[in-house]
């Protein structure tokens, strides 16, 4: 008789197992009579199960020892688990260190720039004639925190002052730039937008204002170059190419050098 389960039909095999588990002598005889070719298989199976059941450690053979609570060893963790935990810890520490050193910080301290004493003085080089000159604290400004104003503009409007930027004293030193660019630079420093009306003369000029707010700079430029700034009240200033007859001259107490046209 082959022992391969594939040669015994499944229903016969199941029946043999059932007889092995719950069979009676009468049921065995009935099976042998009906399937004589599997009689030996049934006999082998019965013997196997009997031997398996007989291998159970008998109660009388096992003397019940006194219960002694023992230290329960941890077997759920493999031997390499401490190593894995350590490596994960090192990886996490490396990621945190990298992030701390190199990634931008959302709460980066604001750059405090003394508006009264500018730390930057650089030339405006629309024609590439002069290269920008950088000094002082500007070199420490992270790239993402640099102001969006053109590189020719001195950044002096980011102070912690409560005054609006357009009223805060500014420092602006630009050489050899067109008037329209200077006006836009003043607007950017004062955090407002500017709209220049048609017909405005656009000469190349140089300016050097210190301790003057953006509005005053515009008014002073307007007196020199025949335009009048009008505040629209919505953060926009319109430059009208006409002189304001009521305009007063710039306060002479502030340190300013009026714009001078560059030939």
């Amino acid at each position: 008789m082959s022992r391969s389960p594939g040669r015994i039909p499944k229903e016969i095999d199941d029946l043999i197992w059932k007889l092995t588990e719950d069979g009676t002598p009468a049921a065995f005889d009935q099976f042998r009579a009906r399937y004589p070719e599997y009689a030996k298989t049934l006999g082998n199976r019965l013997q196997m199960v009997d031997r398996l059941k007989g291998s159970r450690p008998m109660a009388e053979k096992v003397q019940v020892p006194k219960f002694r609570p023992t230290a329960v060893q941890s077997v759920s963790r493999p031997f390499w688990s401490p190593l894995a935990v350590g490596m994960v810890g090192v990886a996490v520490a490396a990621v945190i260190t990298t992030a701390f050193l190199y990634l931008p910080r959302s709460s980066a301290p604001k750059q405090v720039i003394n508006r009264e004493t500018p730390s930057v003085a650089q030339g405006f080089a629309p024609n590439g004639e002069e290269t920008p000159k950088q000094t002082g604290s500007d070199q420490t400004i992270p790239e993402q925190h640099k102001p969006t104003v053109p590189p020719s503009i001195q950044d002096s409007g980011n102070g912690s002052d409560d005054r609006p930027a357009y009223l805060a004293p500014q420092t602006l030193a630009i050489r050899n730039a067109k008037l329209s660019l200077v006006v836009e630079a003043v607007a950017q420093q004062g955090k407002f937008s500017v709209s220049i009306g048609p017909g405005l003369a656009d000469p190349v000029i140089s300016v050097d204002y210190r301790g003057v707010n953006s509005i005053e700079i515009l008014q002073d430029l307007g007196r020199q170059y025949a335009f009048t700034p009008f505040d629209q009240g919505d953060g926009t200033v319109i430059i009208v190419p006409a002189r304001d007859p009521n305009a007063e001259p710039l306060d002479k107490s502030v340190d300013s050098t009026p714009a001078t046209p560059t030939p």
């Binding site: 159970r56 450690p57 109660a59 096992v62 019940v64 020892p65 219960f67 002694r68 609570p69 023992t70 329960v72 060893q73």
Partner: peptide, 27 residues
Amino acid sequence: HDKVFAIARGVLLDQEEAADAVQEIFT
């Protein structure tokens, strides 16, 4: 005890290990 010992010995296939395992199980 006997039934737990039978389980432990049947799985571990070792008398001494099974005896130790029984103590651990009851602990």
